[in-house]
Design a protein around this nucleic acid. Structure first.
Lengths: 342, 342
DNA sequence: CTGTTAGCGCATTCAC
DNA sequence: GTGAATGCGCTAACAG
């Protein structure tokens, strides 16, 4: 009586399914795992029992027994950094096909939060954001791929990244091509900013022009962009174009330009980077560089899955090439804007 | 030999800790749970063993044995809706104290994705976004609280929400107080939009003015805001103020105003809603209504925790009162702007 | 080949 | 403070 499994008060277990289908629980397990070593009639019987009972395997038990959770964890710095949204979509696309779950975790203060605070029950991780020292160390437990930063990544790690250097170079060359001869760059601390700065410097130097960089020691928020742009526009008023390390900083540059009575794009061209939803906004129509984070996410997921299947697999991870997206905030120097793409 | 637990190739388990500390596994478990029924010397011994071995309990085993995961799941529509960021921070604040983990899950197509697709191994859920029919039904398995929407919520559910009606009423009254007499509203489909529309209507009607609402049948994205605002500014050109259902739509209104050569805020005041990072941006300086999502999140978490402790507890959930945040896009009609708050 | 039996994984909890 | 049972699914080893 107490043992009557038909009183459906509890969640049905694999035992209930087995009893209902008249087979052993092992067979149910085999069906669940789509094993080919199950005869058709039994399989149907088991599947029928599963639907009838509304059975779903306990994740806890599955994880404990199989040591696999079919879950991938995405580690990000903060939800405020919109940049992870594209990443998520790309990752999701790959994971869904293979029936993996995705969970997103914020690492509060980067550096402070070590592996100890992470969840343990995942099969693999994708790390977006700066892999600060000691973050990857001591964490060999499950495969991990770094998405988005080629800098400061421990040797041996898988890395999938957008080619920030190439993107920054391309946007600078684009502005040079439009006729700009005094192009400034707003940078910030951090790996992505550094690569973009290098790309900018390569391009201006190749054109025989001096580099003009501001913000090397500050952050990458809107206010940092404002401060850096304000300084540049004040000290080097001949500047006709600004390349920012990201869209937020570009927004700050727009604010500085407005305060200093510089019309955009007539007097000043402004380029952001990331092609965030912000840049795509109709009102802002911010010229930007699409770092193709969706593609980065998708590739990162594929690499991770491959690494999970075979820890020693040789996985190629060519850099993803960014795409220029000129919009309403850029154009020829001293001229009306190039028609917006939209 | 094979059984030699000192060869630390595997992750240490509670058995290893027990052996090292010279106690039973049960005692280790008790220490882990901070049980007061453990003598001080033993406790220190166990804790020492734990650190020495670098032991961390297996989440899978904990979940299986205890039927508790110490994890709360936040269900959102999409990461693109920045509104969840504040929510997360509030929830986190409460959860951290009680040592709960938070996981954020996107419900792809709302309505399509039912409970079956959700993860099962959580102790409680917070649902942000429209609780579409059938989403809550059939999901009595774990406590759930709805955060943010008082509309279309099944009776009996816990709800923590910002008082959207009051917020919209307040902003409309604020504009009336500044001297505006033709105030329009941009709305959209969906529960939050409906409540905000009602608040707006209450305020204008109380002032003896007619309501002027656009966008009732469209979405709540920037483009929807643009379309609705464009229509209103064209058909009722005497309009001097616009209250949008959210910040994104307000952005669309700004674009429409620019296209129609209406200076903001001199010719037209624009108010958003949500006080998203967008609104706080220095460049945009968008007047908005702070729905205090962090507070909503914190309260939702508290309610959930209470509900988890005691399923029958009577939990009071008074509405959270929004706060007006006038910035650079609003002011007296036909006058220079009120100085920005910043 | 197809299917079953037996034992495992790891922490919790309740009698003793 | 301890032993033993428990939760649920996986996976060899084995049998028909």
């Amino acid at each position: 009586m107490t043992d009557d499994r038909t009183t459906q008060s509890r969640r049905p277990t694999i035992y209930d399914v087995a009893a209902r289908a008249g087979v052993s629980k092992s067979l149910v397990s085999l069906v669940l795992q789509r094993s080919p070593r199950v005869s058709e009639p039994r399989r149907t019987a088991v599947l029928a029992a599963i639907t009838e009972l509304g059975y779903r395997p306990s994740e806890a038990a599955t994880a404990l027994a199989g040591a696999r959770t079919r879950t991938v964890e995405l580690l990000i710095d903060t939800y405020r950094n919109l940049s992870f949204v594209g990443l998520v979509e790309g990752i999701r696309r790959e994971l869904d096909e293979r029936d993996f779950r995705l969970t997103v975790t914020e690492m509060h203060q980067p550096g402070t939060a070590g592996p100890a605070t992470w969840s343990t029950a995942v099969d693999g991780r994708i790390l977006a954001g700066e892999p600060t020292a000691g973050l990857l160390a001591g964490w060999a437990a499950c495969p991990i791929v770094v998405a988005g930063h080629r800098l400061s990544v421990p040797a041996g790690s898988d890395v999938v990244a957008s080619d920030d250097r190439a993107g920054a170079r391309a946007v600078t060359e684009h502005l040079l091509g439009l006729g700009h001869t005094t192009i400034a760059h707003l940078t910030g601390s951090g790996g992505a900013a550094q690569l973009r700065r290098e790309g900018y410097e390569q391009a201006v130097h190749a054109a025989g022009l001096p580099a003009s960089v501001a913000g090397r020691r500050s952050g990458t928020a809107e206010q940092d962009g404002y401060d850096a742009a304000h300084r540049i526009l004040t000290r080097r008023s001949e500047t006709t174009a600004i390349v920012a390390a990201n869209d937020l900083m570009a927004l700050g540059a727009l604010a500085a330009a407005r305060d200093l009575r510089r019309a955009v794009p007539a007097d000043l061209s402004v380029f952001g980077y990331d092609d965030s939803p912000l840049a795509r906004s109709r009102y802002l129509s911010l010229s930007s560089v699409d770092d193709r984070s969706t593609e980065v996410g998708a590739r990162a997921a594929r690499v991770l899955l491959a690494r999970m299947d075979d820890p020693d697999a040789a996985v190629a991870t060519p850099a993803v090439l960014p795409v220029l997206v000129p919009r309403g905030t850029s154009g020829r120097p001293g001229r009306p804007p190039v028609p917006a793409a939209e």
